[in-house]
Amino acid sequence: MNDFAEQCRREWRRLGVPDELADEMAQDLASDLEEAAAEGLTLEQYLGTGASDARSFAASWAAERGVGTAQQAPGVAARRPRFLLPFTVFMLVVLVVTALLLATGQPKLSLIRSRTTSTGITSSQVLHATSAAAPVEWILLVVALAALAFATWTWLSWRRARATALA
């Protein structure tokens, strides 16, 4: 059971819980676990489902005490994912280009009927003209909008994590 308390102590340190508080919490846990063992209880009987995962048990205990809730050390700002800026710029370019292509209707596809008369003159008649890439452009537009929604959500999550880390 002391191994469980030691795993919790390591997790508290990883979460940025001050050493003296982590030591106090680990001592309290170790003494509670020793008392439970003296009464004949197993770790699972005493802690319930928390006994299967020391890291999440330690994180929830630290959160209840109001310490160590950030995933990085105190005072360290959350880092923006490296892919976020290039991904956002690329999706904005895709969105603008796709919108322009849809607005201009390029490239065009035409169904033409040609006739050659007995005198050798060829006449052409356009039966139907449409944008050849419209279905692909609409799909690209929807994908770009969805990707930009994801990028916006990621930017906002990063800003919230950064604000929490700096607080």
Rank of each mutant, 00 (worst) to 15 (best):
A70W: 01
Q125E: 15
T69C: 04
I121G: 00
R115V: 14
A165I: 04
F150I: 12
R14W: 02
F4C: 03
L100D: 03
A38Q: 15
V93M: 12
K108D: 07
A134F: 06
W155R: 11
W158C: 03
V136Y: 10
V17F: 03
I139W: 10
V67L: 04
S118A: 14
A51E: 03
S157N: 11
V136N: 08
A161K: 08
T104I: 09
L29E: 01
H128A: 13
I121D: 05
D19N: 12
Q27E: 13
I121H: 05
S124R: 14
Q71K: 09
S60C: 06
L140F: 14
G66P: 03
T98I: 03
N2T: 15
G105Q: 05
G16V: 03
L140H: 10
A36E: 04
A147T: 11
G105A: 07
L145V: 15
A144K: 08
E11W: 01
L166H: 06
L148P: 10
R14P: 01
P81K: 07
Q72E: 11
R82H: 10
T42W: 04
S110Y: 01
V126E: 03
M91S: 13
W153D: 11
E24Y: 08
R55C: 01
F90R: 09
R162N: 07
G16F: 00
A146L: 15
F150L: 14
D19W: 02
A59R: 10
T42M: 04
L33V: 08
A36Q: 05
R160V: 08
T164V: 12
L29W: 01
E11F: 02
I112D: 06
A38S: 14
W12M: 06
T98Y: 02
S52I: 03
W155I: 14
L111N: 11
L140V: 00
R159V: 12
A146F: 14
R113Q: 15
V89Y: 06
L85G: 12
R113C: 03
T119W: 01
M1H: 13
E39P: 00
A26H: 04
D23P: 00
A167E: 11
P18S: 10
S31G: 01
L84K: 10
A63M: 08
V96F: 08
L101M: 13
P135G: 09
A30G: 10
L84A: 10
S114Q: 14
G16P: 06
E20C: 00
T117Q: 08
E34I: 06
A99E: 03
D19C: 02
T116Q: 12
T154M: 11
R9H: 15
W12Q: 02
A63N: 12
C8I: 05
T154E: 12
P74F: 06
A147N: 13
A59C: 04
A78N: 08
R115C: 04
S124D: 15
R162M: 02
T98P: 00
T117W: 05
T164I: 09
L141P: 04
A99S: 14
A163F: 00
A151K: 07
